[in-house]
């Protein structure tokens, strides 16, 4: 049985470990129980700032703390970080203040809360901001490690975590996790599936079903969307000649957008983008949502075949 855990718990664990650095502070907007910053609050109330239900204020309180030498980690639901986008743009990214924003409950995988809670554009919008690191880790182990690495970057960041549990992929492979470096989880030569977040395990399953049909797929966990690991994309183009991106996010501007931008300016390969097709979600269980949005395992496998068929 595959071990399951939620990436948001990895965020909570990372904050607790980071607490040994006295400069680390945690900001909440009444969702600490959900984003998992509550563990830090319980252990270190003096370094936890409740901002109430006020995300715009929260991001700039973070900016003020960062400008004074602190390392703030601020979290709320992914969708509510978007309310403070201009604060992130003008107050955090522009002066390059290392405020670390975590948006939990991202994507349609969030499930029954429905479309208002299912952020499918967060990765796209934060990717447009200079200076900002954008990540969407796939499992609890990598989320914890990447969050801990953020404290050393000196750059602002946005990290999306997920509400629901996903397979644990990196136990015993902790040393492979590094901000800005994609991880090759499976090697193949026919097609490369580049995925992030909850779609990484879906892509591994797709690769298995493709293998049964004699198709050997590479699977990459591209947990960092910005800076994108372009060198790895170039290697995938050379070794596989066809690429599929898979994300629980709009096909516009997210991982698929990032890879498309890279390909058009570098070595070309056919690209199929699996993601939410320019529409909003609805209430449903996490697995049902992946089906409704046509981003689950069979859709990734189909996209892989289309990409292969387009090889010149």
């Amino acid at each position: 049985m595959t071990k399951m855990a939620a990436t948001r718990d990895g965020y909570g664990e990372a904050l607790l470990e980071l607490a040994s650095n006295p400069k680390v502070v945690v900001l909440e907007a009444d969702l600490g129980k959900s984003t998992k910053s509550l563990h830090f609050r319980k252990a270190h109330p003096e370094r936890t700032v409740s901002c109430g239900i006020g995300e715009q204020n929260m991001l700039l309180v973070g900016a003020g703390l960062a400008a004074s030498g602190y390392i703030p980690f601020a979290s709320t639901f992914a969708i509510f970080t978007e309310r403070a986008f201009e604060q992130m743009r003008n107050g955090v990214a522009r002066p390059n203040l290392a405020v670390h924003v975590c948006g939990s409950h991202g994507g349609t995988h969030t499930g029954t809360d429905g479309s208002s809670a299912q952020s499918i554009e967060d990765l796209a919008i934060y990717r447009t901001l200079p200076n900002v690191i954008v990540m969407h880790p796939s499992d609890i182990v990598s989320t914890k490690l990447l969050t801990m690495q953020l404290a050393e970057t000196g750059s602002p960041s946005y990290t999306r975590t997920a509400r629901n549990k996903t397979p644990v992929l990196y136990e015993g492979r902790e040393n492979e996790i590094q901000i800005g470096k994609g991880v090759v989880l499976k090697e193949g030569t026919d097609v490369a599936i580049v995925a992030c977040g909850v779609m990484v395990s879906q892509s591994l399953d797709a690769a298995e079903s493709l293998a049964a049909e004699g198709i050997n797929a590479t699977v990459v966990d591209m947990h960092t969307l910005k800076p994108l690991d372009g060198a790895l994309i170039d290697r995938l183009v050379a070794s596989c000649g066809a690429i599929v991106t898979a994300e629980d996010h709009s096909v516009i501007g997210g991982l698929g957008g990032a890879v498309a931008e890279h390909l058009t300016s570098n070595t070309f390969a056919p690209l199929e983008r699996v993601g939410v097709q320019d529409r909003f979600g609805e209430s449903g269980q996490a697995d049902e949502m992946l089906e409704v949005m046509q981003i689950s395992t069979p859709y990734i496998a189909e996209a892989a075949k289309r990409a292969i068929a387009r090889k010149v």
């Binding site: 502070v25 003096e46 929260m58 003020g64 703030p72």
Partner: peptide, 13 residues
Amino acid sequence: SFGMGSAIAGRLE
């Protein structure tokens, strides 16, 4: 809001 963060930083120190 930025000033509030600066003020909290001062107090923490």
